[in-house]
């Protein structure tokens, strides 16, 4: 069974003459253990696609199934809990809470978590993303790259089944970017998670299992 499935989903913004079809009707599914890469020009609809998949916004038409369950009729609270439990987001903008240090971002997850699900090892994450020296910093005192890595660490910490990353390597140097991608590959393959990564850097796509191109709101599988 797919972790997440998109059935005939489209998304329009605006109406009448200003109507934009940011995402044309799309079918898509992500299985556990799968690492999918998506690339495409700016404004082609990648973020729109990812946020609909992540239940951050509703599609204009069509439905999203998470673990086989239709999310269309779910109330906002159920979707919120699903996001907390099942999804790890690495968003284009920072998704860290500005008044918490890196360490406290994890502490918040501990405090809010109600399920017995095991967390990822915090130290392993911090070590792997080379964040040990900045655990007591607030997001505003991190470099762009550190912030991005901290966001990745935060997204992975709750051990989500589905990881959605919107240009997670954008502000990283190429060797670090390579490391992050390797890490995401490892998580997908060894921990049987589903990972979707949007990137502009086509070199990073080599590590992924499947590649899609987004163009003018159409999603096409390349391999």
């Amino acid at each position: 069974m797919s972790l997440i499935e998109m059935i005939n989903v489209n998304r329009q913004y605006g109406s009448g003459r200003t109507l934009v079809e940011a995402l044309h009707p799309t079918n898509f599914s992500l299985n556990s253990g799968e690492f999918i890469g998506i690339y495409g020009p700016s404004g082609s609809g990648k973020t729109t696609f990812l946020t609909i998949l992540g239940l951050l916004q509703s599609p204009t038409q069509g439905k999203i199934l998470v673990n086989g369950k239709d999310t269309t009729k779910m109330n906002s609270r159920t979707k919120t809990d699903l996001r907390f439990d099942q999804f790890g987001f690495v968003l284009q903008a920072s998704n860290l809470i500005p008044f918490l240090t890196v360490k406290e971002q994890f502490k918040l997850v501990d405090k809010l978590s109600t399920s017995k699900k095991e967390k990822m090892n915090r130290n392993t994450l911090l070590h792997l993303l080379d964040l040990q020296s900045v655990v007591n910093n607030y997001p505003s005192n991190l470099s762009g790259g550190e912030r991005q890595r901290a966001a990745i660490a935060r997204a992975l910490y709750n051990n989500p089944n589905i990881i959605l990353a919107d240009e997670p390597t954008a502000s990283l140097d190429s060797s670090r970017a390579q490391q992050v991608v390797e890490f995401l590959t490892q998580i997908a393959h060894e921990s049987q998670k589903g990972v979707i990564m949007i990137t502009h850097d086509t070199r990073l796509l080599a590590a992924t299992d499947h590649v899609y191109e987004m163009r003018d709101g159409y999603l096409n599988q390349q391999r």
Binding site: T80, D81, L82, R83, F89, L91, L96, I97, L108, R154
Partner: peptide, 15 residues
């Protein structure tokens, strides 16, 4: 926008 981040992370409105 901060609340948006919290909501995206799956923090309940009630929280």
């Amino acid at each position: 926008s901060l609340y948006g981040v919290m909501r995206a992370q799956g923090i309940r409105t009630s929280k």
